[in-house]
């Protein structure tokens, strides 16, 4: 995946490039807004990591111009501004994600992977959590090489959980994934699917966080 990194702070840009390249991404770096706009116009990019505090043009302005030109390229905002208004503004302008400095590299990488899978540009279409593997191209679930038979909806629920491994997915979040399929979702649908999945999956693979939601461990 080709990433356009728009960041004016050189040490940060160098460090980021190193981390991203190590993870197998191709990184183009520009250090000001004008360069970013011309790069977006000419060079084919898959994703933009955008710092808001640029010397010439504000990052939000770049985002706005990009969206005005009907470019739906995913944008992850990287900023030192952590006020809620800034965040809401950024997401309103069409950013796909918003990370506040100082951020965890692993967090950035996890979000990049989610977008990568969405775009279908991932080298590996596999999501792996301990012995459970999801092949997102074949829409299949495996437990140590053995295929696990699951309904489409159960597959969606497990994919939502495993894509966000290590994080909690609330019942509402999982429900919204099922809605994307354009079908009516019964009020206890998520509970039913989880119940069915648990019977097929290893013990304690899906954990319940009482009052909050469900989660799957990364490893």
């Amino acid at each position: 995946m080709r990433i356009l990194l728009v960041e004016d702070d050189m040490p940060l840009a160098l460090g980021l490039q190193q981390s991203l390249r190590h993870e197998g991404f191709v990184v183009n770096h520009v250090d000001n807004g004008n360069a970013a706009i011309s790069a977006l116009a000419v060079i084919d990019q898959d994703l933009v990591i955008l710092d808001l505090g640029l010397p010439d043009i504000d990052g939000l302005e770049i985002l706005k111009r990009t969206r005005d030109r009907k470019l739906d390229i995913p944008v992850i905002i990287l900023t030192a501004r952590d006020s809620l208004e800034d965040k809401i503004k950024g997401l309103d302008f069409g950013a796909d994600d918003y990370l506040v400095k100082p951020f965890e590299i692993s967090e950035l990488l996890a979000r990049l992977r989610v977008i990568e899978r969405r775009l279908g540009t991932a080298e590996s279409a596999l999501i792996i959590c301990s012995q459970v593997v999801i092949d997102t191209t074949a829409h299949k679930i495996f437990i140590e090489e053995d295929e696990l038979k699951a309904s489409k909806k159960e597959y969606m629920v497990l994919k939502a959980l495993m894509e966000n491994a290590g994080r909690i997915q609330s019942r509402e979040q999982i429900e919204s994934r099922l809605y994307e399929w354009g079908e009516e979702v019964a009020s206890n649908a998520v509970e039913v699917h989880i119940h069915n999945l648990r019977k097929k999956l290893p013990d304690h693979f899906i954990k319940t966080v009482r009052g909050v939601g469900y989660t799957v461990n990364k490893t």
Partner: peptide, 25 residues
């Protein structure tokens, strides 16, 4: 406060990234 935030957060990010890179490589 917000200037300090920006001025401190960016170098902190650099530190974090470089520690991460060192650990990785």
């Amino acid at each position: 406060a917000s200037d300090a935030a920006h001025e401190l957060r960016t170098p902190l990010s650099v530190l974090k990234i470089n520690v991460h890179n060192l650990q990785m490589t």
